[in-house]
């Protein structure tokens, strides 16, 4: 079950491209590719393609990519294979801020900005309380904070007027419906790749322990701080774009590890492509399965992802 790392990366790029083409072509209105390519399509077709489906596909792709990358980073930072981008209570902080903003009557943009601020606040809280280089305290602090946020979310839901409840629940389940701007995601993705690829080999060693990494020439505290800030930023952007979508940050990096791409130089870009493609496909299904009604993309993703991942795990040689 182990493939050549380079082949995995090339395969993933193709999968990502295919997922976006599929997303552009799927929907209640059929788009004639021949007309589009020959420039004879109607204005409506262009409008649909360029202003509805393309931004949505890009948002889905960047969100999935950012979450998968921060999942991989978080697993090294906490040296815990169970870590995901939300493990430090980040999505909880984002959720409280976002549904708080909804109650106060902010629009979609206000809610997104609220989510971003909530996520960053949550990260800095964990950081401030535990210190970023003490991983067991970091994990415990994050998990406890996450429970606190969870309680606050339930409290807000309990006292919210019924009219707003559905919108809040959809936000909490994660969805790409509210067509927020694509730029933060694209910038985040570029920044993530630019800042992690030069330290990818450091991460390989860091995952084997701080002392070993230090003895092999890794500036441990600097690299850890760098991962931490990047994780906070990437995850906050993802949460801002699509609400809280769990799961992708946990299973995408692990699937790649099971396929033999444990080297972070392959794993990080690979996670971006696979995570992105995965969410694009899940979102395409979510908006077409029982159209015109939309399902939460996070739910579809879990429904496909859980059996797929269990299959990979059962097939792997992991003891």
């Amino acid at each position: 079950m182990v493939m050549k790392p380079w082949k995995i990366l090339i395969g993933l790029i193709l999968v990502a491209a295919a997922s976006i083409i599929l997303a552009l072509g799927s929907g209640s209105i059929r788009i004639g590719w021949a007309e589009i390519l020959s420039g004879k399509a109607s204005a409506l077709d262009y409008e649909l393609l360029l202003h509805l489906r393309l931004p949505r596909a890009i948002n889905a792709f960047t969100t999935g990519a950012l979450l998968a990358m921060s999942g991989a980073l978080m697993q090294v930072l906490l040296r815990n294979p169970l870590a995901d981008p939300y493990v430090l209570g980040l999505s909880g902080g984002a959720s409280v801020a976002a549904i708080g903003a909804m109650i106060l009557g902010f629009n979609a943009t206000g809610t997104s900005i609220g989510a971003f601020c909530g996520a960053m606040l949550s990260m800095f809280l964990v950081f401030g309380i535990s210190g970023f280089d003490r991983q067991s305290r970091l994990l415990l602090t994050g998990v406890i904070l996450a429970s606190g946020w969870g309680a606050l979310i339930t409290l807000i839901l309990a006292i919210s007027p019924e009219a707003q409840l559905r919108g809040m629940l959809f936000w909490l389940m994660g969805n790409l419906d509210n067509a927020s701007s694509s730029y933060p995601g694209l910038i985040g993705l570029a920044a993530g790749l630019i800042f992690t690829l030069p330290i990818a080999r450091d991460l390989n060693i860091l995952s084997k322990g701080d002392h070993l990494a230090g003895s092999l020439g890794v500036h441990v505290s600097r690299v850890r701080l760098q991962i931490y800030v990047l994780c906070a930023l990437l995850t906050s952007i993802a949460v801002m774009t699509a609400g809280s979508i769990g799961f992708v940050g946990l299973i995408v990096p692990h699937s790649l590890r099971l396929l033999g791409a444990g080297d972070h130089r392959i794993l990080l870009p690979g996670a971006a492509f696979l995570g992105g493609a995965f969410l694009v496909l899940a979102d395409t299904l979510a908006r077409t399965l029982i159209a015109p009604q939309q399902l939460p993309a996070g739910v579809i993703m879990a429904l496909i992802g859980v059996p797929m991942f269990l299959y990979l795990l059962a097939k792997s040689k992991m003891p």
Binding site: Q75, N80, P81, K208, L212
Partner: peptide, 25 residues
């Protein structure tokens, strides 16, 4: 270079990959 008392393996790696990280510096 230092040989530590214990080694940690949190994520899967082969013997060759583990040895190769010695070239890092």
């Amino acid at each position: 270079g230092i040989l530590f008392q214990d080694s940690e393996d949190h994520f899967p790696a082969t013997v060759l990959e583990t040895t190769l990280i010695g070239r890092h510096p």
